[in-house]
């Protein structure tokens, strides 16, 4: 048996077990690889197309309709869809299609800004609390609990009525800003908790220990190690919250303290339509359909982005 094949040295003798793995993975870091993955996902393109259409609708509504969404004709109240008004008319005889198109801008503005604001404020606070720990964590967590303890509707009423007398007509920019800020102030603790839990978990991982042993500073540890590994749950949260926030905006409008005439939003349309659902179903159905499509598009986008940026899923 001495004439058998020479043995390999253990060092450098590992067979290429990962040979079957997709070689295109791993070209150049998290962002480049993530984008390369993203580009290949049909889900991403479907979601992006839908979002693009919605954005165009919001920016240039006149491309889609030339009807003034504010023109009311009580004689046509609750009219069925017809060539004149393709989706029918609401209780006050306004064109539902035109209103839905013009409602895109305020709705998307509120949804996007509120999601963005909540995530930015909440995630930042959570990141700091989870990474620094000790008294910073205690302080941020307690403050967060105070805000999270406020019931949303009650908090909304208090904040918005403080700034605006009920029934007063206020400008579009002003009311949108106020609604967004109200939502952010009342919702950031949710994002903070998610981020804090994730940051706490990740900062216990051995690779963070190894980076610290190498002399890495806090910025590097947070930026390179903690943030990329905590992004997934926050991203999912943000896309789901987008839908929730549009609903919240509608709830505030229904109470008469959120967006209101002359501003049109899908939330405003839905809340107006509720009273006469049985008689004029189209007034509820069509804005709701727009809302569902928008929420789905953002959820799909979030899903695709999360998967693409997880190397383990490839």
């Amino acid at each position: 048996m001495t004439d058998t094949a020479p043995a390999l040295r253990a060092r450098g003798a590992e067979p290429d077990e990962a040979a079957a793995v997709d070689e295109s993975a791993g070209r150049g870091g998290l962002w480049v690889d993530g984008w390369a993955q993203l580009r290949r996902r049909p889900l991403f393109w479907i979601a992006s197309t839908l979002i693009l259409v919605l954005l165009v609708m919001a920016l240039w509504p006149s491309l889609f309709t030339s009807v003034d969404p504010r023109v009311a004709d009580l004689a046509l109240s609750g009219a069925d869809p017809s060539p004149d008004a393709v989706l029918g008319r609401d209780l006050q005889g306004r064109d539902i299609y035109a209103r839905a198109i013009h409602g895109a801008a305020p709705t998307l503005t509120v949804g996007l800004l509120a999601s963005l604001g909540t995530v930015l404020v909440g995630a930042m606070a959570g990141l700091v609390a989870g990474y620094r720990g000790s008294w910073v964590d205690g302080l941020v967590s307690r403050v967060g609990e105070v805000f999270a303890g406020l019931p949303f509707i009650l908090g909304g009423i208090v904040i918005l009525t403080t700034f605006n007398q009920p029934g007063r007509i206020v400008g579009e920019v002003r009311i949108v800003t106020q609604v967004v800020l109200t939502i952010v102030v009342l919702s950031w603790p949710l994002a903070m908790r998610i981020m804090r839990a994730a940051a706490l978990e990740i900062s216990q991982q051995d690779y963070v220990k190894a980076a610290r042993a190498l002399g890495a500073g806090p910025l590097r540890i947070v930026g390179r190690h903690i943030l990329p590994n905590t992004l997934a749950p926050v991203l999912v949260f943000a896309t789901i919250q987008f839908g929730v926030f549009i609903g919240a905006e509608a709830a505030l409008s229904f109470l008469g303290i959120g967006l209101r005439d002359p501003v049109v939003s899908w939330g405003v349309m839905i809340s107006e339509a509720q009273e006469r659902v049985a008689d004029i179903p189209q007034a509820l159905f069509f804005p709701a359909a727009f809302l569902v499509v928008a929420v789905l598009a953002f959820v799909m986008l979030g899903d695709a982005v999360r998967d693409a940026f997880d190397p383990r899923g490839r």
Binding site: D206, Y207, R224, N229, D310, P311, R312
Partner: peptide, 16 residues
């Protein structure tokens, strides 16, 4: 320098 115990948690999964 240090070499840590767990080969699964000692490397950042999102970095090459």
């Amino acid at each position: 320098q240090i070499v840590l115990q767990d080969p699964y948690t000692s490397l950042n999964p999102r970095r090459t």
